[in-house]
Design a protein around this nucleic acid. Structure first.
Lengths: 242, 242
DNA sequence: TTATTAAACTTGTATTTACAAGTAAAAAAT
DNA sequence: ATTTTTTACTTGTAAATACAAGTTTAATAA
């Protein structure tokens, strides 16, 4: 039987409340240090039970938007996101691409995987080859991130023909192929900038770069996306929680 | 009424199961790719209900030990911890100090806070002054991490007189002062190594370092610990989840 | 044999209820 | 006025239950 799902999947209640509260925090409805409404109040306000509300709040806490204190309440903790440009943790999207512009350096091309790829690949991945692309991400027209993406060529018809300018790769994957990033692993290193990276990111002499190697998990089992990311951290830092 | 708590606090059931499963994964009882017992099996095995078991598993998943797949089960995901030396995420202790030796460079001294401190301080913190210390952490006798710690001098009698050799600072804080690290924020940068850092970490010329600035939250409200950490990432990476 | 269907699993979401433990504010006692 | 106690309110932990949704296996039909 072939089942074609057209409409959007039902969004869980706890996820909806998460999005609402997150938006309110980012919009400044709740400011740094403010107490969120208590769990019982949120239950009444949104017509759900406490475990559901708690699931929203624990996700918010995990992503660093709030801190929970027994006996007190949930306190807004918005500081990092105001300055940072790339998040190390967070369930939403890994990169806050709100103010980031994208410039394509190498258009998507189909090629075999590099011999010494940074992660071990499955046989299926290896046989399929990879879609390769290079992009620069700019903050206020200043290049900050050099992003090399590797996508296994599994069931992604016509992806190399698509336009990626100013549209997140992840958005295209979500909208056109129903692929969602669920999370992933990353390795971090400080390395000297290569000549090409130095040129691309307008780096000063001897300015090192932060190198991230990422393996991203998706909602499609067996499908992983890979990125090699070079960051100019001279002016901006990368934020994270632990 | 004065209440003196002598014994250890009762450890929640979900935390106990978390520790058991975590240990089994680290010990290789469950190996990479293995399926954990199903939630219902874990319920029977440990005599608890599914919400409790699920709390353990979701914490394990958050810390990167397992991946959960609807309809399938929980799959062990132990790779990063075999290679990495410093964890960016994880509820337990931030640093896996199992194989790391510690060498004191500057013994704990009481001093005023630096003028341009990396985080904003509260008035209480500023007035109290800080306990300052510098340590090098070695992996197989090779210096990897240079750690500068700043601790507010609030209610920590005789801390400057204590011995820190080969004993984690955090262990002393926990054992002697009942202070637990609950989590925190960090900023990451790639920077050129200063002469002192280069000497301390035996860095090659032009080898940059990964710089972490950490603000750690504790179980004592208002008490934060601060660290400025320099990592030699030439041979080892820092791992993280997102 | 092959493809389809059904059943038996798995985790995901959600409600209801109960009590423990920590915090803050109000009330009472000194 | 000050201290102590109580109360009310907060989040934390835990059980019992129900159904949804995804995956795998077994049974069935072609």
């Amino acid at each position: 039987m072939i089942s074609v799902t057209v409409g959007a999947k039902a969004i869980p209640q706890y996820r909806r409340l998460y999005e609402v509260l997150r938006k309110h925090i980012l919009d400044g409805v709740y400011k740094e240090g403010d107490l969120l409404p208590s769990e019982n109040e949120l239950c009444q306000l949104h017509g759900m039970t406490r475990p559901t509300v708690r699931q929203s709040l624990s996700t918010l806490a995990n992503d660093g938007y709030i801190r929970k204190h027994q006996g007190k309440g949930s306190i807004v903790h918005n500081l990092p996101r105001e300055i940072g440009i790339l998040s190390v943790s967070g369930t939403t999207s890994a990169v806050g691409d709100r103010d980031l512009k994208t410039r394509i350096i190498v258009k998507p091309v189909l090629m075999p995987w590099p011999d010494d790829f940074m992660f071990t690949l499955s046989l299926l991945e290896k046989e399929s080859g990879c879609i390769y692309m290079e992009r620069v991400r700019l903050l206020e027209d200043v290049p900050i991130i050099y992003d090399i993406s590797y996508i296994p060529n599994i069931n992604l018809p016509r992806i190399t023909a698509r336009q990626f300018e100013n549209k997140s790769l992840f958005r295209i994957l979500r909208d056109s192929y129903h692929i969602e990033i669920k999370g992933g692993d990353q390795r971090l290193k400080a390395i000297p900038a290569s000549a090409r990276i130095r040129r691309s990111l307008n780096l000063k002499k001897d300015q090192p770069v932060l190198h991230l190697e990422r393996k991203m998990e998706t909602n499609k089992p067996g499908l992983f996306l890979y990125s090699s990311i070079f960051c100019n951290t001279e002016k901006y830092s990368i934020f994270g929680r632990f």
